[in-house]
Design a protein around this nucleic acid. Structure first.
Length: 925
RNA sequence: ACCCGGGUGGUGGAACAGGUAGACACGCAGGACUUAAAAUCCUGUUCGCCGAAAAAGCGAGUACGGGUUCGAUUCCCGUCCCGGGUACCA
């Protein structure tokens, strides 16, 4: 009887399905545990070996908690709206709903292959109207709410209207228009449109205008990563900025709550740091500088600075090129240069601007006046200042800021040193600890103190004020696309009217063409009846559906609520959330905000969605390349190609080759010729009779031919081997390129475990003999280690521990049921199929899924002595076995009596003997 | 450019609170079983030096350069390289 994994795995997968083994109830006396994977986008390429890494980890943890007596919710679903399906539709004419359905079917079949414990009755799809009905409903909840800064939470906007009627907006600063002020009387006198416009500036989802990447040639708006070097990735057409009406999520109002919430959750420090930096809260001041310009139109220039103390070190000002006042500031002399520069900046994406190392900018010809000294400061414009942050204008202090310093050096702007010896003349120093010099009334004052002194002074004379600033901006919440949730709003006389809850879902209509409408509007604007109904033509972005899906899993079929309060109270927070760091500041912040809003409005009972977050690393692809002599069909082996990609003076084309027809680095020439018709007649120049490929680590993607389909691995080695191998590769948090070499070892291990139970000829060899102390020690060491490792998500060392355990039991020739049965329970989260099969084989009737996890007992593993490394000055020179309860004095005596140690001491006596119990001994000579 | 990770044998990785660097595997080399192969098992495997070999020993060694410490893969400072994110990919 050999280990026939194909048959075993099929058998148990069918059995689990038949018995509803993974069905989860909302009604249980057991403690709950909610384990969640980040939503996959069902891409057309299907599942590759990188996807399941996190799913296997969460599946192991789920099964482990179930064995520990928890009611475990472990669902799966699909983030099914998105750009790729729409792009595919444009190119192939297949409706996104159809291709998405197919992709999901593929994903599901592939997932089923791996033996996950998902409760598929709870599957959700964001593109299903039954689901997005509630995405739209939450959108309307946001629309009908504002953030009350006094209570610090979302409240119905109807309450705000009541306040306006009584007292105007004096107690509620308008977040969308901070200078807006009106009385109760004025409010009543406003017409409907005016009132609605004002309310829009308070709502948590609101309409405004924003810049998009507009590509005239493609007639569409492009995502940032579809723009490369200022042109479209597809076709290479010019891309410019265009202002369009957009919906936004007023997430900035939640900035402080999102920061505070981080203290209550278990995310890695780096994750918290990324979110904190993204929110970017800073304390500083807004300051007005009087302006001297030729045209004389601009009176003041307002800057935001976090360092008001450096006011006397300001040597120039920089304003963002897109600020309209640039037009009014430029002088006749500098006008042409400014215009040319603005033209250049227009073609630059924000990312390119930030990543640019080359310094660029132009002087506008205007000056700002230092409010204290009256000194004239030249005003420049440069792409390194972005319009969206602060006021879009900065006061540049070269001696204290690296970027400003480089700019000043590049353009030869004289640098004022206000920090004395802290500035070395060649590098900025951003210290806050210097004593100020060349700073008028601040001279001799420590910088930290000067900050307050300056702000007090400008607040007193009205030229500025303290200001808290956030780097985070409100999130754009509309897309000029088809394949997304329709926004449930009608436009009547320029006023956005929300649909009634009863009219939801607002279903996505069928379209003939996925082409965008005129002037970059979404494809929905091409549908006459949609436009006739005055419906919004933008759709929601990809992150809408994923901002709340974890709630829907709790109560997926509810038709009267997004999630019953009883269900969300029972399941509460996600106890373990596994996903990649690429979602650090997008999805994670949005879903945290939505959760807070739903909490504030009383729909759920917790305001942080995820209690603990574990980041899984990315499985990268290891690409392979062949080298073709340009213009021929002859391929040169890697080792023969020159470093500059030439061969005997001829140029070579470096081409991706399917990794599945390469063994290590050696190309399967027959398979290569069969791969594509144009390679049928390929010729090869070999080295050592082999064709060797080049390699590079890249993101796993279909276009790079480096994807590996888990189906192939499962077919060859089985799901249990695949699961354990993915874990064995290394820590889940780490990224690593996929490589199948090594999988044999894991497969061998499972066969070795199998042989503890079964002999090929004799069948079962399990006995009912009583275990020896040695066997119990092996078992309990494994229990302790595996429980610890699983608990702290160290699955790779967990797999090693199983190997050690099985190796030792094999050495002991242990075939005892009392031991082996316990090992099976330990391993069932990792390898559920084989353990279920052997569980049955040793004579159990029920499923191993609900067995009780073994309880570790110290008494079986207790040792009385330890072999200590004995070092002299930190170098290990001997090993001595000493009782664990030995005292310092006993240890010293034993060590000094040792021959090897005596040799090294050369008769000297040690200055000090360091003895760390159960660790080591070190002699200092 | 900025923010966050990572860098340990030929390879994946281990070392959990600063305490024997290289667990467990892969690969490779040698051997056993076999007509042969597969499967399985056994031995060795960081590098260098010493040595016919084995044993034993010595020295170096965790990207690089410094520092703290009796002791650093682990903590601190600086540098290089690779990956993720930077707001419309998901």
């Amino acid at each position: 009887m050999e280990y026939s994994f194909r048959q075993i795995e099929k058998k148990w997968q069918e059995h689990w399905k038949k018995t509803n083994a993974y069905k989860v109830s909302n009604d249980s006396t057991k403690p709950k545990c909610y384990v969640l994977d980040m939503f996959p986008y069902p891409s057309g390429a299907g599942l590759h070996v990188g996807h399941p890494l996190g799913y296997i980890a969460s599946d192991i943890y789920s099964r482990f908690r179930r064995l520990k007596g928890f009611n475990v919710l472990h669902p799966m679903g699909y983030d099914a709206f998105g750009l790729p399906a729409e792009q595919y539709a444009i190119e192939h004419g297949v409706h996104p709903a159809v291709s998405t359905e197919q992709n999901i079917a593929t994903f599901r079949r592939q997932l089923d292959n791996i033996g996950f414990s998902f409760d598929w009755d709870r599957e959700v799809r964001t593109s299903d109207p039954k689901y997005y009905k509630w995405t739209q409903w939450i959108f309307l909840q946001l629309f009908r709410s504002f953030f009350n800064r006094h209570t610090g939470k979302a409240e119905p906007i109807s309450g705000l209207v009541a306040t306006f009627e009584k007292e105007g907006n004096s107690s509620h600063i308008c977040p969308g228009n901070p200078t807006l002020k009106f009385s109760a009387g004025e409010w009543s006198a406003f017409d409907k449109k005016r009132k609605e416009d004002i309310l829009m500036d308070y709502r948590l989802t609101y309409c405004g205008f924003g810049e998009v990447n507009w590509c005239e040639a493609l007639g569409t708006v492009l995502a940032n990563d579809e723009v490369v070097n200022g042109v479209s990735e597809r076709g290479g057409f010019p891309v410019v900025k265009k202002k369009l009406r957009q919906w936004y999520l007023r997430i900035t109002e939640y900035a402080d709550r999102l920061l505070e919430g981080l203290e209550k959750v278990e995310f890695s420090d780096s994750m918290k740091e990324m979110q904190t930096n993204w929110i970017g809260k800073s304390h500083g001041a807004e300051m007005d500088f009087k302006v001297k310009s030729e045209k004389g139109i601009v009176k003041n220039l307002r800057v935001y600075t976090t360092r008001p103390d450096t006011i006397f070190g300001v040597d120039f000002m920089v304003i963002a090129p897109e600020l309209e006042i640039v037009e009014d500031l430029k002088s006749a002399e500098h006008g042409p240069a400014v215009d040319a520069y603005l033209e250049y900046v227009k073609s630059r994406s924000e990312r390119e601007r930030m990543a640019e190392k080359k310094i660029s900018g132009v002087f506008t010809g205007a000056y700002a006046l230092n409010p204290f000294s009256g000194r004239e400061i030249p005003i420049w414009t440069s792409e390194y200042v972005l319009a969206g942050y602060g006021t879009g204008a900065i006061m540049a202090v070269p001696c204290g800021d690296e970027r400003d310093h480089k700019f000043a050096e590049h353009f030869g702007i004289p640098i004022t040193n206000i920090i004395g010896s802290h500035y070395n003349g060649s590098e900025a120093n951003s210290t806050k600890d210097a004593i100020l010099e060349h700073s008028d009334f601040l001279n001799g004052m420590p910088m930290r103190k000067a900050m307050d002194v300056v702000v007090d002074k400008i607040e007193a004379d009205g030229t500025g004020k303290r200001k808290v600033n956030y780097k985070m901006r409100d999130a754009a919440f509309s897309r000029q696309r088809y394949w997304g949730e329709p926004i449930p709003v009608k436009w009547q006389d320029g006023v956005a009217e929300p649909l009634a809850d009863g009219d939801l879902p607002l279903e996505l209509p069928f379209v003939e063409s996925y082409r965008p409408g005129p002037e970059g509007e979404g494809p929905l604007s091409n549908i006459p009846e949609w436009v006739a109904r005055e419906l919004e033509t933008n759709t929601m972005p990809g992150y809408a559906g994923s901002s709340w899906y974890f709630l829907r899993y709790m109560d997926p079929h509810n038709e009267t609520a997004f999630c019953d309060r009883k269900a969300s109270d029972y399941w509460g927070q996600v106890d373990l959330y596994i996903g990649g760091t690429e979602h650090a500041v997008g999805h994670l912040l949005y879903s945290r905000m939505w959760t807070k809003v739903l909490f504030d409005l009383g729909h759920i009972g917790h305001d942080e969605p995820y209690r603990k977050l574990v980041n899984q690393g990315m499985i990268q692809g290891s690409s392979r390349f062949v080298y073709r002599i340009t213009g021929t069909n002859t391929f040169v082996s890697k080792g023969l190609a020159q470093a500059d990609e030439t061969y005997e003076g001829q140029k070579l084309d470096k081409l991706h080759v399917d990794v599945n027809i390469v063994d290590g680095y050696e190309l399967d020439i027959t398979a290569f010729r069969a791969w594509r018709p144009d390679y049928n007649t390929a010729e090869f120049i070999l080295e050592d009779d082999k064709y060797l490929c080049g390699s590079e680590v890249e993101k796993m993607s279909k276009s790079k031919f480096n994807t590996v389909n888990p189906d192939h691995i499962v077919d060859r080695y089985g799901a249990d081997t695949f699961r354990m191998y993915e874990m064995f590769l290394g820590p889940v948090e780490l990224s690593k390129p996929w490589d199948t070499k090594g999988i044999e070892g894991v497969h061998r291990f499972l066969k070795k475990m199998w042989r503890l139970f079964v002999d090929e000829q004799k069948g079962s060899i399990v006995t009912n003999d009583a275990p020896t102390p040695e066997e119990l020690k092996v078992l309990h060491r494994a229990v302790r280690k595996i429980e610890e490792d699983t608990e702290r998500f160290s699955f790779n060392t967990g797999v090693s521990s199983f190997m050690i355990c099985v190796n030792e039991l094999t050495d002991l020739k242990c075939h005892k049921k009392a031991i082996l049965e316990q090992v099976l329970i330990l391993i069932t989260p990792y390898a559920p199929h084989i353990s279920e099969e052997l569980w049955q084989l040793v004579g159990n009737s029920g499923s191993i899924l609900d067995a009780a996890f073994p309880v570790f007992e110290e008494k079986y593993v207790k040792e009385s002595s330890k072999t200590y490394p004995v070092a002299i000055n930190g170098k290990t020179r001997a090993e001595i076995n000493i009782a664990l309860d030995a005292t310092q004095q006993q240890v010293e005596e034993i060590v000094l009596a040792d021959v090897a140690i005596a040799k090294w001491l050369e008769g000297k006596s040690p200055k000090k003997v360091i003895y760390v119990k159960n660790k080591m001994i070190n002699l200092v000579v």
